[in-house]
Amino acid sequence: MTTKEKILLLLQQSDVVLSGEKIAQSLTISRTAVWKAIKELEKEGYQFDHLANGYRYLSTDLYNAAVLQKELPMIPTIEASDATESTMKEAKLAALDPTVATPALFLTETQIGGHGRFNRPFFSPKKQGIYMSLLLKPNQSFQELPQYTVLAAVAVSEAIDALLGKKTAIKWVNDIYLDGKKICGILSEATSDFESGRITSIIIGVGISFSIPQTDFPAEIRDKATSLFAGGETPPFSRSALIAEIWTRFFALLAQLPNDDYLDRYRQKSFVLGRTVQFTQQGVTYTGIAQDITATGELVVQTAHEQKILSSGEISLEKY
């Protein structure tokens, strides 16, 4: 951790004003070094009160890997960037690097080439969303793997509920909705070793619209998507707080396996079950009732003539 990061962490964790002298003594550096670090942090967007008796941190919603590391000790590698093509790509490159300790979390303020399922572009305005990917190296067979997308959906949905005080819902298999509009998309990708048949890496990408004004959404998705704070209000919690809550819950769910309680929680949050859905397979469009979600995360749909089991793809349903 750099001197600048250490000073930031000290000030963020302090409930009182810290003098330059006290900071310098704590880190065994000069007061000039403290002053220079504060100036550098302010250039990066952090804000501090400059008082007669020292410095006080003013809350700013910027990512800080050092602070998140303290909240998420189960993730040894956390990297935050100002901009990147996509966090999924960052995670894929890291998966090839044997020196990267995993689990590894990659965050960015904006994505230039972010995408969701079917390679659709993901709207990623700077500092108004959470764009992140988690790299895991489970070294398991496909049969042994838990349903990571389902686990992540439960963790994200319940984390938002806990901090926001509202109830979110899940659309099979990977979208989180609030007040009838999409606020989050989740994408999971696995890489396997051909010879051993083992899964070498899992990457879970999560994109959350956090504080995007409703009028800023592109016209083609404005009626379908929203953000947690779309009305311009000041969020009562930071993006970092939500990130910490999500992955704390995710790893708690992982630790409870093979208990499949998360599947029951996923089903309870689904707004698809019991409703009429449409889907297309091999060029044929089917209509049926979504009846269940299996232990492996598949959607069971009863059509007029047969039961269909969907392991992937996309469904549509009446306006939620």
Score class of each variant (00 low, 15 high):
residue 1 M to N: 05
residue 2 T to R: 11
residue 3 T to A: 02
residue 5 E to D: 13
residue 8 L to F: 03
residue 23 I to L: 04
residue 35 W to A: 15
residue 36 K to A: 14
residue 36 K to V: 15
residue 36 K to I: 14
residue 38 I to C: 02
residue 41 L to W: 06
residue 41 L to S: 04
residue 46 Y to M: 03
residue 52 A to F: 10
residue 53 N to F: 06
residue 53 N to G: 07
residue 56 R to S: 01
residue 60 T to F: 00
residue 69 Q to E: 08
residue 77 T to L: 08
residue 84 T to F: 02
residue 90 E to Q: 15
residue 91 A to H: 09
residue 98 P to L: 14
residue 102 T to M: 14
residue 105 L to I: 04
residue 106 F to P: 02
residue 110 T to N: 10
residue 114 G to D: 08
residue 118 F to N: 08
residue 131 Y to S: 10
residue 132 M to G: 02
residue 137 K to A: 14
residue 139 N to Y: 05
residue 142 F to A: 13
residue 148 Y to F: 13
residue 160 I to A: 10
residue 171 K to V: 02
residue 173 V to I: 14
residue 174 N to V: 02
residue 175 D to Q: 01
residue 179 D to V: 04
residue 180 G to R: 08
residue 187 L to G: 01
residue 191 T to D: 13
residue 192 S to A: 14
residue 192 S to G: 07
residue 192 S to M: 01
residue 193 D to A: 02
residue 194 F to I: 14
residue 197 G to W: 00
residue 205 G to V: 08
residue 208 I to W: 06
residue 208 I to P: 03
residue 209 S to D: 09
residue 209 S to P: 12
residue 214 Q to S: 08
residue 216 D to G: 04
residue 216 D to V: 12
residue 219 A to H: 13
residue 223 D to M: 11
residue 227 S to T: 01
residue 229 F to D: 00
residue 234 T to L: 07
residue 235 P to I: 07
residue 235 P to C: 11
residue 237 F to Q: 09
residue 240 S to L: 04
residue 244 A to H: 09
residue 248 T to Y: 01
residue 257 L to E: 03
residue 263 L to K: 10
residue 265 R to W: 04
residue 267 R to S: 04
residue 274 G to T: 13
residue 277 V to H: 06
residue 278 Q to Y: 07
residue 280 T to W: 05
residue 286 Y to L: 01
residue 297 G to P: 12
residue 298 E to V: 04
residue 303 T to D: 00
residue 306 E to L: 04
residue 308 K to N: 00
residue 314 E to H: 00
residue 314 E to P: 06
residue 319 K to P: 06
